[in-house]
């Protein structure tokens, strides 16, 4: 209540603002921008932050312009968009399942997308675009399967998580099989894809992600208030006039689309979807799904992770998925321990 401010107009319109959440969002955007500038400046041809900003704004010499706007900017934009999609998708999953573990990493969506991608690589030796399409289909099919298995009549507690763990076990086995039957070139390509990497991303990957976000983000945020009501249980939300089943189906389809598209673009970058909503929540200290802060947190996390992997290991030596995996894994362990202490597991 303390940090909530209502802004009212004489015409009877009113908007409720959570000041703290707003500040968190602004700071995260600032951090994401700062990390992006640093990331663009990092590489075989280091460019100073001032030059990067000048070049982004249209100045700078042709050489810098090519490196910044053609080579590195698309990669950073893909990182930002993938992070944003994963953060928002994760927040949606966690809010709907009312469980911090109910996130796409645990549910096997990443493994599903991987299965789709590996099928294309190993069985059809497909092109990069075909691999992306395969990953997208794999993720969407997995999402649908989980929905059908776990979602009927609402999800409660760990049922979704258990179904998801089962799904990822099966899919991991499928992926293992595909790797063993593949030749060495395809296997190497598969393994790189499976770690989640941002290297070599260009404008072709940016546009579909941007288009998807432009449609889904407003749609999802428009349903944020209904989702907030659903936190209190389906019955309470229903009694307050939320069409629970409809909102849930809509948000789940959005979450699966966001996650599957992000995974198709950058590979299964692990744990961003799990950690971003939780970190955002700790910063805003506000109940509710924290959708916008989670989105910003996801974007920031991924850019920072990519920058640190380049800084620590050199340009394109270490896929970003390794960094998020290590950081996220530690976080997951901490979460399990603290949930256990709180008596929830």
């Amino acid at each position: 209540m303390k940090t909530n401010r209502a802004v009212r107009t004489p015409g009877g319109l009113s908007v409720r603002l959570d000041v703290r959440a707003l500040v968190v969002v602004l700071l995260l955007l600032l951090a994401a921008f700062g990390a992006s500038v640093l990331l663009i400046g990092t590489g075989d041809f280091p460019i100073s932050a001032g030059d990067v900003v000048r070049t982004l704004l249209g100045g700078g010499d042709p050489g810098q312009d090519f490196i910044v706007n053609e080579l590195r900017l698309p990669r950073v934009l893909v990182a930002l968009l993938v992070g944003a999609c994963l953060g928002l998708g994760g927040a949606l999953f966690q809010a709907v399942s009312r469980n911090p573990l109910g996130s796409p990493d645990i549910l096997g969506l990443g493994q599903g997308a991987t299965a789709g991608a590996l099928t294309v690589i190993v069985l059809f030796s497909g092109s990069a675009n075909q691999v992306t399409a395969g990953a997208l289909v794999g993720g969407l099919v997995t999402g649908l399967a989980i929905y059908l298995l776990a979602w009927k009549q609402g999800v409660h507690g760990y049922r979704l998580v258990l179904v998801g763990i089962g799904m990822s076990a099966i899919l991991t086995a499928v992926n293992g099989y595909l790797l063993t039957v593949s030749d060495i070139v395809d296997a190497a390509r598969s393994v790189v894809w499976m770690t989640g990497s941002l290297s070599g991303r260009d404008w072709e990957q940016v546009w579909p992600l941007l288009a998807l976000c432009a449609v889904l983000v407003p749609l999802v945020l428009g349903n944020a208030r209904a989702l907030r009501m659903m936190e209190m249980g389906d019955d309470v939300a229903g009694a307050l006039g939320v069409r629970v089943e409809r909102v849930r189906a809509l948000l789940m389809v959005s979450a699966v689309l966001l996650t599957a598209t992000a995974t198709a673009a950058a590979g299964p970058v692990s744990f961003v979807a799990l950690t971003a909503p939780q970190l955002a929540r700790r910063l805003t200290r506000s109940p509710g799904p924290n959708l916008l802060p989670s989105l910003c947190m996801g974007a920031t996390l991924l850019v920072v992770a990519d920058w640190s992997s380049q800084r620590l290991f050199g340009a394109d030596q270490m896929p970003v998925g390794v960094v998020t995996g290590v950081v996220g894994g530690v976080y997951l362990l901490w979460l399990l321990v603290s949930e256990r202490r709180a008596g929830r597991i």
Binding site: A6, R8, G12, L13, S14, V15, R16, R225
Partner: peptide, 8 residues
């Protein structure tokens, strides 16, 4: 409430 009438 509604999206433009969030807290009167």
């Amino acid at each position: 409430q509604g999206i433009l009438r969030q807290w009167s």
